Simulated assay, not measured.
Amino acid sequence: MTEVRGVVAAGKGKPVEVVTINVPDPGPGEAVVRVQACGVCHTDLHYREGGISDDYPFLLGHEAAGVVDAVGEGVHDIEPGDFVVLNWRAVCGLCRACRRGRPQYCFDTHNAAQPMTLEDGTPLSPALGIGAFAEKTLVHSGQCTKVDPSARPAVAGLLGCGVMAGIGAAVNTGQAGPGDSVAVIGCGGVGAGSVAGANLAGARQIIAVDTDPVKLDWARQFGATHTVNASESDTVEAIRELTGGHGADLVVDAVGIPKTYTQAFYARDLAGTVVLVGVPSPEMQLELPLIDVFARGGALRSSWYGDCLPSRDFPMLVEMYQQGRLPLEKFVTEEIALDQVEQAFEKMHRGEVLRSVVTL
Rank of each mutant, 00 (worst) to 15 (best):
70 A>L: 10
69 D>I: 02
58 F>Q: 03
49 E>R: 14
21 I>E: 05
43 T>G: 04
21 I>G: 01
40 V>S: 13
36 Q>D: 12
18 V>H: 05
25 D>T: 15
62 H>Q: 04
49 E>F: 00
24 P>E: 13
38 C>W: 03
37 A>C: 06
25 D>W: 03
36 Q>L: 15
72 G>S: 08
35 V>G: 03
32 V>G: 03
69 D>C: 01
32 V>Y: 09
16 V>Y: 03
50 G>H: 00
38 C>I: 10
64 A>E: 02
13 G>F: 00
43 T>M: 07
38 C>L: 11
59 L>D: 04
61 G>K: 02
17 E>R: 15
63 E>Q: 11
63 E>L: 11
50 G>D: 06
45 L>H: 14
53 S>T: 13
46 H>D: 12
27 G>Q: 11
52 I>W: 01
68 V>G: 08
54 D>L: 14
64 A>F: 05
66 G>L: 07
73 E>R: 12
52 I>T: 09
37 A>R: 05
18 V>P: 00
51 G>R: 10
41 C>L: 12
24 P>G: 13
44 D>E: 14
68 V>N: 07
13 G>K: 06
54 D>N: 14
56 Y>W: 13
66 G>C: 07
26 P>T: 06
47 Y>W: 06
37 A>N: 08
27 G>W: 10
67 V>W: 03
30 E>S: 09
14 K>I: 07
38 C>F: 07
66 G>K: 10
39 G>R: 11
70 A>H: 01
42 H>T: 09
50 G>F: 01
70 A>D: 13
31 A>E: 08
25 D>I: 04
20 T>Q: 14
26 P>E: 02
14 K>M: 13
34 R>T: 13
18 V>Q: 02
44 D>R: 08
15 P>L: 06
62 H>P: 01
74 G>M: 04
18 V>R: 02
43 T>P: 03
35 V>N: 03
72 G>W: 06
20 T>M: 05
46 H>Q: 13
61 G>H: 04
58 F>L: 00
59 L>I: 01
57 P>C: 08
70 A>C: 10
72 G>C: 04
31 A>Y: 08
29 G>Q: 09
56 Y>E: 07
31 A>R: 06
47 Y>M: 01
65 A>K: 06
27 G>F: 03
13 G>D: 08
59 L>M: 06
55 D>K: 13
33 V>Y: 03
46 H>F: 12
43 T>Y: 05
36 Q>E: 15
14 K>S: 12
64 A>K: 02
31 A>D: 09
58 F>V: 02
38 C>P: 06
44 D>P: 07
16 V>P: 08
47 Y>S: 01
37 A>V: 09
74 G>P: 04
52 I>D: 01
73 E>D: 15
31 A>S: 11
29 G>S: 04
17 E>P: 00
35 V>K: 02
22 N>A: 12
